[in-house]
Design a protein around this nucleic acid. Structure first.
Lengths: 195, 195
DNA sequence: TCCCAAATACTCGGTGCCGAGTATACGCAC
DNA sequence: GTGCGTATACTCGGCACCGAGTATTTGGGA
């Protein structure tokens, strides 16, 4: 049975090993330093599972078990040729084919009619504020990264996320206004039910 | 131990039972009819697990086991008062507080530098086309729903999704152009590496 | 009236994922 | 030199989730 592309953490592992051989714990460190854990969910349990999985399918191989000082043994892994091929192919797929995801907010907003309009307005405004905060935090981060001389390509995913957050904020603002003015289609019935 | 809000499917169950008592299979049917399964992942295994969970915490109760015709027994559930409270509170949280999610595309685009610029351009253009298709499909669906006399509030989540898709398309278009023209920050180094 | 496809209603074994826990080693203070 | 907090490196039990599979019933065509 061939390798199944599920946990994106496996992709991150391949990408890291494409740079140089590492042991799992070092991968985690590196991902933290580079703020990759903001884009790909990282935790130890999954990391070791995923590494084992990749090794089983020979996309990576245990290249050495070193012993520095008196610390416990560490297994250092290296990427194989099939691994490199898999990395590129997976990456292409991830970008080219939009995956079906289920954002929590979509689920929430689809049922907003269950809340009285006042409450709905309040929570939407709360979210709008939260999104605004994330947006300014991101702007600050971008400023810092650019200031450090990092090229745009190094933080392109943040650029994307900012664009998405801006779009969400715009939509939230529209919805809040429409609700406040009773201008959202079906408002009368909505308002009537909750009285 | 109190009820843990994890699977949004549980929220859908509460919402359906807020309308009228149902048995699990009927919930699935109703969700399908209303295209709710596009917003909330539905499958039988999870459905029955989630219903059991809700019952254990007394957010819903088995109100009857009917036997229509000679079919197997069906357990009909009804929402309780605590259940209704939970529904509203969960809904408020879901809308007000942006959840940390890990969209696959962000993971992918963050590593786009590993692909040669030509390949990158190609896959981004593929995605752009795919997003475009989704967008027109959505537009058609909206047309139909509005034509059926459904108020905007009934398909507000599709409105939101369209806004997000439009934003993504815009970003993809920008990135494709920038790549084609070598205008993305760090392009020279990128192009140099892959030769 | 007989047969078969589709619908009904649910079950259950397997798998991925998680994160708190463990155990050792290093470094710094006093 | 001894105590203690932090860093290193990994493990393991458990739980949510999944979806193919099962068993029965209904409907409709030949």
């Amino acid at each position: 049975m061939s390798f199944k592309r599920m946990n994106p953490l496996a992709l991150a592992v391949l990408a890291l090993l494409a740079e140089r051989p590492m042991h799992p714990y070092e991968m985690a460190q590196t991902m933290r330093e580079r703020h990759q854990e903001e884009v790909i969910k990282l935790n130890y349990g999954s990391l070791y599972t995923v590494v084992e999985q990749l090794a089983k399918h020979e996309l990576i191989t245990a290249s050495a078990t070193q012993k520095a000082g008196n610390r416990p043994e560490r297994t250092v892994y290296a990427i194989t040729d099939t691994g490199t091929a898999e990395l590129h192919d997976w990456l292409r797929e991830l970008i080219a084919v939009p995956a079906k995801e289920y954002p929590r907010f979509e689920a929430g907003i689809s049922m907003v009619g269950l809340l009285p309009p006042d409450d709905a307005l309040a929570v939407v405004e709360q979210r709008c504020a939260a999104v605004d905060e994330q947006l300014t935090a991101l702007a600050v981060l971008l400023e810092r990264l650019a200031g450090m001389g990092l090229p745009q390509l190094a933080w392109i995913e943040l650029d994307y996320r900012m664009a998405m957050l801006r779009a969400e904020r715009a939509w939230l603002t529209w919805f809040a206004t429409a609700t406040r003015e009773g201008a959202v289609g079906g408002y009368d019935h909505w308002e009537g039910k909750h009285r």
